[in-house]
Every structure is written in C-alpha cells, then in structure tokens.
Design a binder for these strands. Structure first.
Length: 304
RNA sequence: GGUGCCAUAGCUCAGUCGGUAGAGCAACGGACUGAAAAUCCGUGUGUCCCUGGUUCAAUUCCAGGUGGCACCA
C-alpha cells in the first residue's frame, strides 16, 4: 500500500480540528498540524489550539512545538514536516495533516525554491532604510540588481521588494535566478480534502469563537505578551488588535469587533487561495461519512 | 397633545442652489514560493421613508402621513 498524506484544509473556524480528530481516530493515525501560529507554545487562546484532552487522544505534531522567539517560516516547516512524515510513514501508511496556512500546505506539497535563509541583521537594516529613505531607493536598487524580477513583482508590496533585495544582496545573484518553481515529487501520495460551509454560518462560527476566546482570557494572554509585541509571530489576528487597545487607540469592545472582522477577512483570503487549487475535493464539515468514504475509495484505487 | 430636528448603501453619515448620488467601516473579488493569521491590489452593492402637489424633470422644493429623537405640556 502506498503511503498517503490526507490533508484536511479550509478557512479558519470551519471545524477542521474536530473533524481531523474523527478522521485520525478512524484511521488510527497521527496529525501533523499545518498552522503557522498554533506552532508557537506561547500563543494558545488566540490561536484556537486544540485543548489538552484532545491532544492526548491523538498525537499531534507541530502544535506548540516552537517558540515565538525562534525565527520560523514556510521553508523550515517544509523541511521539518517532511522529516517528521518520513518517521511516521515508517510505521503507518496514512497520516493526516490539517490546518489552514496556505503557503505552508503548498510548501509541503510542492516545495519551495532553494534559497538561503534571510540574515536577520540584513533584514533589519533594509527595513530601517525603507523607513528613512522610503521605498523609492530600494526599488531603484532592485531594478539594478534584478531587472527581471522588477518587471513582475508587485511594486507596491514592500515585503516582496525587501525579500528580493535581501536575496540579491546575500548571494550576489538576481533573486529571479532562484525562482525555478520546483514542484518537487514527494515519496507519498497526497489527498486534499477541503472543508467549507455557508458563508453566514462560517461567519457566525468565527464570531462566536472570538467571544469564547475572550471568555477564556484572551485579553490576559495578550497583556502578558505585550512586551514581545515586536516579534513577527505576534503580528497576528487576535493579538495586534488587543495590543492597540493596550496602547489606548481603541476600546476593548472595538478590539473584539476588529478581531472578528479580521478573522472573517482571513477566512476569505484562505478561500481565495484554495479556490485555485484543482486538487481539492470539497465537503461541508458535517459530511464525515462521505469524507471517510472518499478517502477509502482513494486508498483502494491507489492500492491497485 | 404642541413645537423643533432627523429619515440617503448592511452600519455611521456626506451630498444634490431640481437633471436618479458618495465617503469610512462592513461586505465581495483577486495576487501570493523563506515575515504567510504576513503583505499587497481591486469592486458601490441604493424604491435617497410613504402618498400627493408644483415642474419638461423631485431623492432634493411644498403639503400631508408614518417612524425616531429632543424640548414644552
């Protein structure tokens, strides 16, 4: 039987966690989380990590496994998750991956270009230049160093400009020369199961989940993290809005409403990304039996 | 009961000296390869409260009605 990774994906709040537990129990396997924020052990309430009881029922990987102090990115996830999968597949044929971090999913399925990790000091100095000189000088520099990328990059997107410059400066090569779009082969089959539901229902679930987070003490969690607010990992829905409230720019109630709105926006953005992926088979969260049937059917086909 | 003010997008409101209207937020769509819950781009979705009058033409002016708010009783 070929090794198969079943990926359960969908917008935030749709019900991936609960279903992933059911599916993992049914196939008696473990879960790889694919969530760029649940990976941090210092963040709990605001990232909606599964509760400890759930985590004990089914072994989870990449949940609360890293620190917000560590620099992390999609490429690291690709490397680490592939290693972990190799270990897991030694003992089992099926592993579940669940989460909504789009780039992380794609990184694991198709791989990223072979680039050096960004030097954080260089990043800091470029960010400072962007602040003091404005983006125009950096754009000119990029046009010099990598005219090809300059032609295709979104010139209004500072992060894209900065990253391209970082790579040019670090390697002495144009950033575009690294962009080969590898689409690597993986030593296992992949089945993508998408979860979605009626938009109004989804928004309701998201809004209620935010209220629940506040009941569970989100404000206190964020207050404790306030001194670390500059960390990238804390540039996150549910955290930055409360940072703003601590700064006194908005009321706590406004922060709560903004968290809801930004979560809804995030869900929409996820759907936009997933929509263009033709490999996804879509279900609603209640279709547990149909999903298991689809997986079994897929496994049988692959087995022949 | 009387007087005054208000009624325009899902919400808060602007505006049209009479030629069927626009901001913010929300909503909706898109991009995306090492910061991705990040970052960036795009879209106005409307019985202008109702009925009548004046007018070539009324969301706009006039009258009445309805609803809301305030004050006086």
């Amino acid at each position: 039987m070929p090794k198969t990774l079943i990926i359960l994906l969908g917008p935030t709040g749709v019900g991936k966690t609960d279903l992933s537990i059911d599916i993992a129990s049914y196939f008696q396997t473990e879960i790889i989380s694919c969530d760029s924020r649940q990976i941090y052990r210092e963040m709990n309430i605001g990232t909606a990590v599964p509760d400890t009881k759930t985590l004990k029922t089914i072994p989870h990987h990449f949940i609360r496994s890293h620190s917000i102090h560590d620099y992390y990115n999609a490429s690291k996830f690709e490397t680490e998750a592939l290693e972990r999968l190799e270990q897991l597949f030694r003992q089992r044929d099926i592993v579940i991956m669940t989460g909504g971090s789009m780039l992380y999913i794609d990184a694991l399925c198709k791989g990223l270009d072979d680039l050096p990790n960004v030097d954080q000091q260089l990043r800091q100095s470029l960010m400072k230049r962007m602040e003091t000189e404005g983006i125009a000088n950096l754009l000119n520099e990029l046009r010099e160093l990598d005219p090809d990328y300059y032609k295709v990059v979104d010139l209004k997107n500072p992060k894209r400009i900065l990253h391209a410059l970082e790579i040019c400066l670090m390697t002495g090569r144009p950033f575009s020369s690294f962009r080969t779009n590898p689409s690597r082969k993986r030593p296992f089959k992949i089945l993508k199961i998408g979860l979605n539901c009626d938009r109004a229902v989804l928004y309701n679930r998201i809004n209620q989940r935010v209220d629940k987070m506040f009941e569970e003490g989100l404000e206190e969690e964020v207050i404790n993290l306030y001194p670390l607010r500059h960390l990238n990992s804390l540039n996150t829905v549910g955290y930055r809005e409360i940072f703003d409230h601590i700064d006194g720019t908005i009321t706590l109630d406004e922060a709560r409403e903004k968290i809801k709105a930004n979560s809804r926006k995030y869900a929409r953005k996820q759907l936009t990304w997933f929509r263009r992926d033709p490999e996804i088979t879509w279900f609603t969260p209640g279709m547990k039996d149909e999903i298991i049937a689809t997986i079994n059917q897929h496994l049988n086909q692959e087995g022949q």
